[in-house]
């Protein structure tokens, strides 16, 4: 089993390092050819505008959308969640339209408003998770998604079939539980 880290732009190395820590093989994915060699994909944090543009230029946009619709496991963090959303506001921008939710970019404000907070994530255990929110988006409307964690009454971690997504950055916390949770998801999909 091999996990891909979408390699258009962003903190790709931080996700690769987390995978190394939990001893799971992972590679940077920046071409259609490499995407076909992985069993699941993490879409990292970074600038969603940059990633969107490069996804389209590399031809990965359409292929990725089709694969995800056919059950390919994906985990989007921050910018990754924005790319997976059905609707992106502030400002409006195109997306893969996979997750049944609306998201507002930089929902908490600018960098001065970035923060970290302990949140409860029942699917990974009772111990709280130190979630890092950096110029994070806010999920403003949810449809058919399951809420896995909330902060201040707003969803910050969601699941819809083969896709999970968080508005925070687990790759920046010294806690690998969410990555392990995703790896389990990929293993189950891979095994079936």
């Amino acid at each position: 089993m091999k996990i891909g880290i979408l390699g258009m732009q962003g903190d790709i190395e931080e996700h690769l390092a987390t995978m190394e820590k939990i001893k799971v093989e992972a590679v940077r994915v920046k071409s259609v050819k490499t995407l076909e060699t992985v069993n699941g994909l993490i879409m990292p944090g970074g600038e969603s505008t940059t990633m969107l543009r490069l996804l389209k230029l590399t031809g990965l946009f359409d292929l990725l959308k089709e694969k995800i619709k056919n059950g390919f496991p994906v985990y989007g963090t921050c910018a990754g969640l924005i790319l997976l959303a059905d609707e992106v506001e502030h400002p409006t921008q195109d997306s893969l339209k996979i997750l049944d939710l609306s998201v507002s970019r930089n929902g908490y404000g600018r960098q001065v408003d970035s923060f970290h907070a302990e949140i409860s994530v029942p699917v990974i255990g009772d111990k709280s998770f130190d979630a890092v929110f950096i110029r994070a988006p806010i999920i403003t409307k949810v449809g058919k998604v399951e809420i896995l964690a909330s902060y201040n009454g707003m969803p910050v971690f969601v699941r819809q079939k083969n896709v999970i997504a968080s508005t925070f950055h687990p790759e920046l916390s010294n806690d690998t539980r969410i990555h392990e949770f995703f790896v389990e998801m990929v293993k189950n999909a891979f095994g079936s």
Binding site: G7, M8, Q9, G10, D11, I12, E13, E14, G45, G46, E47, T50, C78, A79, Q111, S114, F115, H116, V132, I134, R135, H169, L172
Partner: peptide
């Protein structure tokens, strides 16, 4: 905090 400041810089990587 340091995590918030340095972590933000991580988001620029490969850009």
């Amino acid at each position: 905090t340091w995590v918030i400041k340095e972590g933000f810089a991580d988001m620029f990587k490969n850009g």
